[in-house]
Design a protein around this nucleic acid. Structure first.
Lengths: 335, 335
DNA sequence: CTGAAAGCGCTTACAG
DNA sequence: CTGAAAGCGCTTACAG
């Protein structure tokens, strides 16, 4: 591995000059710049990132805090892969790498410690609990960070999420348009975040149209299929069962579909179903799940942009406001 | 950020001693070790990884070369998330982080360059083409690396893949056991790798039982649903159509299922179908896709183990032999 | 536009 | 068991 010193000697300039052609090329004369560049290519010089980071305190690395340690194994983000691809692509365009942080002891300062040890330029959080002390410590520390699908704010922290309330309203509006008036929902967990927002949107659209919502038309699920099936069974046993159900996640919607089939009901004739997420399954499962699609790639690119703007702005400027991605109704066979 | 010098002064020892309590604690006296540890906790000292890497040439980071730049967007690995989780977990246990490398210009030395610039301890490759010069350069360079689902070897390079041939044989054996004798296959791309191995296993099991395989019973797909559907349409139009089909991927199997339905055939009565992968869909799509499951987590843990053993062994020792993960037949409704 | 020099925060022989 | 010192490969004021 050639070092900057060797390269400098190789073309008869100082190491400072070599450093400049790599960092502030506009400040060195055309002649020497070209000479250095040619020599660099010739001997295969590559700057050592550790040395740069040590000298500059900037690593050009973004930490990815991904909480894979769920009590419930087999947990899957509906579209993690797309987020990762978009994030990586957008970050790459700015020369930033993504460091997937090892999960160690669960000390409340573990994320912060990783940031400091590695001189990370910023952090993106995904799949984290909203009450995780380690996450909160990060958000409070003034490290540029952006959370995905988690309403987290701080001096230098913002988040991106879909327009969950708006998406739920689209779902309800579609059902209303189809003539339904007895519309139930299988919600996500009630903690702040997408689940709560979808439920709020659900209620709001119904209210806006003066359609009553009996309390037992709202049953909470956990985004998994089984909870959707169980919830639907419960709804169908009501004295006045709903004619339509909005599930706050596609897996739960598939569960609802199964429950309807179990009960000998036709979908959408006897029970209409709308989901949320537009997972791969939605298009393939007969008769096709009507659902609310999210802007998958948007999560990654928006997060990257927010992060980069925070990194580049002075420490005292306010973080960008939370970013809300538009959703889209995808009408298929179930509603 | 406290530095090692401050910590040293804080407890009246040299920086060398402090360094030792963090790196070779067994070599320092119990008394001073405890004094240093207490002081470190007190002032919140965290070693700077860049400085360590600069001094040791080891970064404790593994590069993840993930080729997300597919000509075909929307491409998805059947279980990338599980691989990533298992990989991260296994690597974490050894204090290794995963660096998702930014995709830049496609110079044939780009991966190698990243390894050198960051002093990466090793690399894992996923979703890469087998003929990518940048990948081959990496495998040849003697950098510890392990490829997933890609038969890549080198002085310090091995790979992990499922027992694809064995899995295909399980599929055929199952079909044979069900009484089928006219068994076709929709294969994956014919380049070396899982697709070719599955096809070889398919042929082998048939041959072992003396069951003939007409040439037009083998049609090549690309793992996507549409290719499975198209292939099946073609098979069904044959003078002597098959009674069963083994699709080398679940998406193609789903396509086969759709084609059968299109043609008014009953599954498995008129056409039996076995897939490969056991994607989420397989269990959910009526009547349930019979398929060959892979050891998803095994990919990650095996890769981590192989990598760690290579990193720890001396540079001249041979790499571990390729690792083959067992598969498992999951009988469901389609065969 | 360029160079000499100090400094970034560690590790590791080498002595003792 | 511990310390003084050199070195890892860069960057960046400061002069000129």
């Amino acid at each position: 591995m050639a070092t900057i010193r060797e390269l400098a000697r190789h073309c008869g300039v100082s190491v400072a000059t070599v450093s400049r052609v790599f960092n502030t090329p506009e400040v060195v004369s055309r002649a020497t710049r070209q000479r250095v560049e040619a020599a660099a290519a010739e001997i295969g010089y590559l700057p050592n990132e550790s040395a740069r980071t040590l000298a500059t305190k900037k690593s050009n690395m973004i930490g990815l805090v991904w909480d894979t340690d769920h009590r419930r194994s087999g947990w899957r983000h509906p579209f993690l892969q797309e987020i990762l691809v978009a994030l990586k692509t957008a970050l790459s365009a700015h020369g930033l790498h993504l460091l997937l942080l090892a999960t160690g002891a669960d000390a409340p300062d573990r994320h912060l410690a990783a940031v400091r040890r590695h001189n990370l330029d910023g952090v993106v959080l995904i799949d984290n609990g909203s009450r995780d002390p380690a996450v909160l410590a990060l958000a409070d520390a003034g490290i540029p960070c952006v959370a995905l699908d988690l309403p987290l704010t701080g001096p230098c922290c913002t988040y991106v999420t879909s327009d969950n309330a708006g998406g739920a309203r689209q779902a309800v509006a579609h059902l209303l348009h189809r003539g339904h008036r007895r519309i139930a929902t299988i919600s996500g967990p009630s903690r702040p975040g997408p689940g709560a927002d979808r439920l709020a949107g659900f209620r709001a659209e119904l209210a806006a149209h003066g359609v009553p919502l009996p309390p037992d038309y709202v049953v909470e699920g956990d985004y998994y299929l089984d909870s959707g099936r169980a919830a639907t069974h419960r709804l169908l046993r009501l004295d006045t069962p709903p004619t339509a159900v909005f599930a706050a996640g596609d897996e739960m919607a598939v569960g609802a579909l199964q429950a309807a089939t179990d009960a000998g009901l036709r979908v959408p004739g006897d029970l209409a179903i709308v989901g949320f997420d537009d997972i791969e399954l939605a298009a393939l499962l007969p008769p096709g799940l009507t659902t609310i699609a999210q802007d998958r790639a948007g999560f990654g690119t928006a997060a990257a942009e927010a992060l980069i703007s925070m990194i580049q702005s002075s420490p005292d400027t306010a973080p960008p406001p939370p970013i809300t991605l538009p959703t889209r109704l995808v009408p298929r066979g179930t509603a």
